[in-house]
Amino acid sequence: MSDAFDYFRAYAVRALCKARSMPKGRMKHLQLVVGRIYNLLKKEAAYGPNTQHLEDFRAAQRLERSLDSRPNDPADRARFAATNPNRAEQEVR
């Protein structure tokens, strides 16, 4: 992976642009964290070739994919909350 710096930079830019377009909240914060992780990996890759950061990169990708699969629509959140009767009862109060 000779051009890891460029790859990590592209992932960081994409993640941070995606975070800027999101509304305020927890999901935006987590997307910013993903972008920061990519930036740290980019800086680490700039110092020299290192395959140890690949595990961190894969973990950041898994986190970003999990953010994409979470429901952002309040109607979806209510539907998921309704599957747990105790939680739905707490939200109604």
Rank of each mutant, 00 (worst) to 15 (best):
E91I: 06
Y11V: 14
I37H: 07
A81R: 04
A12L: 10
N50L: 05
T83K: 11
S66Y: 01
D6K: 06
A4V: 05
D76F: 12
A81P: 07
A88E: 05
E89T: 03
L63Y: 02
G35N: 09
S21H: 09
A75T: 02
P23T: 02
Y11C: 13
Y38M: 08
P23N: 00
I37Q: 09
F8E: 06
P74M: 00
L30M: 03
R77D: 02
N72A: 11
M27L: 08
L40P: 07
S2C: 07
L67W: 07
V33L: 09
T51Q: 14
A10W: 01
R14F: 00
D56R: 01
S2E: 12
H29Q: 13
C17F: 15
Y7H: 15
A45P: 13
A78T: 13
M27T: 00
F8K: 03
R77P: 06
R70D: 12
F5I: 00
F8I: 01
F57E: 13
D68W: 08
K18L: 14
A19K: 00
L40T: 15
K43G: 12
F8M: 15
K24Q: 06
L63E: 02
L67V: 10
A12Q: 05
H53G: 09
V92R: 12
L16T: 14
A88D: 05
A19M: 01
P49T: 12
E91H: 00
P85W: 02
R26W: 14
D6Y: 07
A19H: 03
A60Y: 14
A19F: 01
F57A: 14
Y7P: 09
G25P: 05
D68H: 15
P23S: 00
P71F: 02
R58L: 10
A19P: 10
V92G: 07
Q90L: 01
R9D: 06
V92I: 07
R26A: 03
A59F: 12
E44S: 07
K18P: 05
M27D: 07
